[in-house]
Design a protein around this nucleic acid. Structure first.
Length: 797
DNA sequence: CTTGACCGGGG
DNA sequence: GTGTACGGTCAAG
């Protein structure tokens, strides 16, 4: 039988002491294909010493007994890698590899061991050059299967085929509502499907609501929905750390079998760091929170990664605003269940829409680095970079470096080097601004200067053109610059093709997400070289990259000053320029600068800003990385300020944002007046407690806290008064009137009847407002003089 | 200044 | 199990 399909997922099982790889695919006719491969064998490399005499024979004959099982080397091949002889040592099952490598590494004839920790299914994909989600042709013998709609194949041969149109995957988002550690509702959202399962009956006209008898039935229905809808991509938000944990726990307790796999297999968990991720054979389980946290966060303005703020920023939609305490009591009183079900469905809807936006990016990363979407969607930047380097290392037939040992990692963490250049701004308000930045500064430096672990202080060149005490080979192209240059060139080609395509088309979409995937790898490579856990770690490389970065940016600053422009600020790869006729002058400066730069390097205009505020300390020293800019089309860009942090009360955050807006639009007096009014209102106790609450999460039981922070103290007192507070609950507290430390005065909002004006004025309102107003010459005293306007009037006008 | 504890998202 | 998270922030020492 011959067919064409897209690979979605891969696992392996041990059957009769043989490793069988299962490829879960989707055929061009929309059928689930399970293809079995039994011909691929696990292996690792042994590097022999110069004098090795009979190592080959010793390896071939080697066996060891573990847990009454004989572990054997089944085959040894002699091959060449990196201009040396190495032995490719095979065994029958993957778990033998770590045992075998530990046995042979102490032999005197063995110099080293390599590639013993490349995951088995990953190894299969790399060695056979199979990219997930790309089209493959499978030739095999059909086997009988218990799941009648699937095709079960024993693989003879797999080849790549030219890309066809992408299949449309069945994507489904789900969300749970949990109360007292029980699942009370579950919602599902797909293109043409929405459903809310609820364990309590309530009158509703909504067709999507399905009342179930109990939690057990809810879980059974959940399984049924995923299986019967033939879900290929299962989406959720924070499902690794929350929803699946609950599902597992409750299913065990209630005796529900979670046979969710396309082959009817049970859901299982794989350890990734400290959290466990649910694996469902043949279906792609994506936790969008993990993906956002690891890869998307950097480019978001949102400083919290809640579904609400991420969805708001990426798809322009928000959750329904509900009060969770109210919701809890209405659930118990069986009121307002329709509202709760609407809320629950909305979460799934937002997750689904976020998925529509982010899953294509996950998929293009998958294709680019050759790893399944399950893995890619949970990886950090460093892992993404490492995986693409592993892929290219295999293509180039070079040995992949080993992971560092624990000791080595600790040693590396002690290494330090000078970072990026940040120009200290002068606190104040600025107008007529242009932000210029280097296009991919660090990647372009790596390529232009051939920075790589193997080109570092090479033997073939004269040690000249030193950067931070080191030099890089001028004759042979380094591994990392070679990979990055390919990526930069491909991205450049894609971007120019994109300009000619219609932005709505599928082709445009595919190319666009591909270039986004390439961008991630480009931007993360510098950080990877400095990452202590990296296989291709190179502290000297990282140091050279930032050294050159400082050189380029400081030269740019000098050049800008020479043309008479004021350089207000500069951080790493950008300069904020100020002056009359800023548009023309920035453009001129850009052209002049680019002429002098080496190949691959380029400076661009990021945006023009009508005004900006840079903050300063009480002593008048400008603060780096804390500022706000107002673009010419009215967009506010706030960096590093308190506005969105949840350990600040709403009153302080709102006030800060209003103050920023006012001072950036020439309304300083109104800003000052607003702050004074807020202070006065606080003193007169006119502010609602709701605006003064501070949110902090209780992560463990009270007695486990060593440091009694305000939220812990507030929770403790509330429990003493009989309130039930569970681990994981967000404590909403207010600082009330009284004596002692701040934590002594912290009370849960329910028990707070008053507030400490002094605390809110001095620790919340004034710090937030003065962060901005200090640059205009104001200090605490200006707002603390009771009722006296004299000190303020000196700045008026 | 360094060290260690805590936290993220979810309900 | 072809293993063992991570980076930022803040209070205490």
């Amino acid at each position: 039988m011959k067919l064409q399909a897209q690979l979605l997922d891969i696992t392996y099982k041990i059957i009769e002491n043989t490793a069988i790889i299962y490829l879960y695919c989707l055929s061009d006719r929309g059928k689930n294909i399970i293809a079995k491969v039994d011909s691929f064998k696990p292996y690792f490399y042994v590097i022999p010493q110069e004098k090795e005499s009979d190592l080959l024979d010793r390896l071939k004959a080697f066996k060891v007994i573990r847990d009454e099982k004989t572990i054997k080397i089944t085959k040894v091949e002699e091959i060449r890698r990196d201009n040396q002889k190495v032995y490719k040592v095979f065994t029958n099952i993957p778990s033998n590899i770590p045992i075998l490598k530990d046995e042979v590494k102490i032999w005197p004839e063995v110099k080293g061991k390599r590639e013993f920790d490349i995951a088995f299914t990953r190894r299969y994909l790399i060695d056979n050059d199979i990219e997930p989600l790309s089209w493959i042709q499978i030739i095999g013998i059909e086997e009988e299967t218990t799941c009648n709609e699937d095709i079960f194949l024993h693989v003879k041969e797999i080849t790549k085929v030219k890309s066809k149109d992408e299949l449309s995957f069945n994507m489904l988002a789900f969300d749970l509502e949990v109360l007292d550690e029980k699942i009370i509702m579950a919602s599902f959202y797909s293109k043409d499907f929405r459903k809310v399962l609820c364990i309590k009956d309530f009158p509703t006209k909504q067709k999507y609501v399905k009342v179930v008898n109990n939690e057990k039935e809810l879980l059974e229905k959940l399984v049924e929905i995923i299986v019967s809808r033939k879900v290929n991509v299962l989406l959720g938000y924070n499902t690794d750390r929350f929803d699946f944990e609950i599902i597992k726990e409750r299913a065990e307790k209630l005796g529900v079998t979670l046979n969710l796999g396309v082959d009817g297999s049970k859901l299982f968990f794989v350890k990734r760091g400290l959290s466990h991720s649910a694996r469902i054979n043949g279906r792609i389980n994506i936790d969008l929170y993990a993906f956002v946290e690891n890869l998307i966060q950097q480019e978001l303005k949102a400083e919290t990664l809640s579904l609400n703020s991420v969805a708001n920023e990426l798809i322009g939609e928000k959750k329904y605003d509900i009060d969770w305490d109210e919701m809890e009591s209405s659930w118990k009183k069986e009121q307002n269940l329709a509202t709760l079900s609407k809320y629950c469905l909305k979460d799934s809807e937002l997750t689904y829409k976020l998925g529509e936006k982010l899953v294509p990016v996950v998929f293009s990363l998958s294709v680019l680095i050759g790893q399944i979407p399950f893995e890619v969607s949970r990886e950090r930047y460093s892992q993404v970079v490492e995986q693409i380097l592993i892929k290219h290392s295999h293509i180039k037939k070079t040995l992949i470096p080993n992971r560092p040992s624990k000791d080595e990692i600790l040693k590396r963490r002690g290494n330090s080097y000078a970072g990026a250049f940040v120009l200290e701004p002068k606190g104040g308000i600025y107008k007529n601004l242009a932000m210029l930045d280097y296009r991919s500064l660090y990647p372009s430096i790596i390529v232009s200067h051939n920075i790589s672990p193997e080109t570092l202080n090479c033997d073939c060149c004269e040690p000249k053109d030193e950067i931070m005490g080191n030099y890089f080979c001028k004759l042979k192209k380094g591994f990392i610059p070679e990979v990055l240059e390919k990526i930069m060139k491909e991205r450049f080609t894609l971007k120019s093709k994109l300009k000619k395509l219609k932005s709505g088309s599928q082709e445009y979409q595919d190319m666009y997400t591909r270039q986004v995937a390439l961008k991630y790898v480009l931007n993360a490579t510098y950080g990877y070289l400095a990452y202590s856990g990296a296989r291709w770690y190179c502290n000297e490389c990282a140091s050279a990259i930032t050294g050159l970065g400082r050189k380029y940016i400081t030269e740019t600053i000098e050049a800008a000053r020479k043309t008479g422009l004021n350089v207000v600020y500069s951080d790493t790869d950008s300069v904020l320029l100020q002056g009359e006729n800023i548009h023309e002058r920035a453009q001129d400066f850009l052209i002049k600068t680019n002429k002098k730069l080496p190949k691959f390097m380029e400076i661009e205009i990021e945006d023009f800003y009508q005004s900006g505020v840079f903050t300063s300390t009480s002593k008048g020293v400008g603060i780096k990385k804390r500022y706000a800019l107002l673009s010419e089309n009215g967009e506010l860009r706030i960096k590093g300020l308190e506005r969105v942090r949840r350990d600040w009360c709403a009153l302080a955050k709102d006030l800060q944002e209003q103050v920023i807006k006012l001072v950036l639009t020439d309304q300083n007096d109104a800003a000052v007046k607003l702050v004074q009014e807020t202070v006065d209102a606080l003193k007169k106790k006119e502010i609602a407690l709701k605006k003064l609450q501070i949110y902090t999460k209780l992560k463990k039981t009270i007695d486990k806290y060593e440091i009694m922070t305000p939220h812990v103290q507030a929770a403790k007192r509330a429990i003493e008064r009989g309130l039930e507070i569970k681990v994981g609950q967000t404590i909403r507290y207010v600082i009330t009137e009284g004596e002692g430390r701040i934590s002594d005065k912290a009370e849960i909002i329910k028990f707070a009847t008053n507030y400490d004006s002094e605390y809110y004025i001095e620790n919340q309102i004034l710090p937030a407002a003065l962060r901005i107003l200090r640059v205009l010459g104001y200090s605490e005293d200006d707002f603390l003089m009771k009722g006296k306007q004299t000190s303020l009037s000196k700045f008026a006008g």
